[in-house]
C-alpha cells in the first residue's frame, strides 16, 4: 500500500512499543494481534530499526498480511492485517 493509503487506513488496534528495544515491539505485536479479530488491522509504533524487518517476516510466517510501514520522525508505524 502507498503511504497515503496507509495513512487513511481504519486501524482497529494500535500498540505503542516505542519505549522498548528488540524484542519488545515484536512481542507487543504478538500480544496485540491476539486481541483483534480476523481481517482487522493492527498498527505497531516502534522506534527500533530492526522492527521494520522483523514484523513483516513474522506476519508472513503467521499468515497475516503485512500492509506497509510509514516512517515518522524518530519512529515507524507498521501495519498488519490479521
Amino acid at each position: 500500500m502507498t503511504p497515503e493509503e496507509l495513512k487513511n487506513l481504519k486501524v482497529d488496534k494500535t500498540v505503542d512499543a516505542r519505549g522498548t528495544s528488540c524484542p519488545g515491539p515484536l512481542l507487543a505485536a504478538k500480544k496485540a494481534i491476539g486481541e483483534i479479530k480476523d481481517s482487522q488491522i493492527l498498527e505497531v509504533l516502534s522506534a527500533d530499526e530492526g522492527t521494520k524487518k522483523d514484523i513483516p517476516k513474522w506476519a508472513e510466517k503467521k499468515n497475516y498480511k503485512y500492509l506497509g510501514t510509514i516512517e515518522e520522525s524518530g519512529y515507524f508505524r507498521i501495519f498488519v492485517k490479521k
Binding site: P23, L27, K30, K62
Partner: peptide
C-alpha cells in the same frame, strides 16, 4: 531474546 522470537512465532 532468542526465546522471545520463538514465543512470537
Amino acid at each position: 531474546v532468542v526465546l522471545s522470537g520463538a514465543a512470537a512465532m
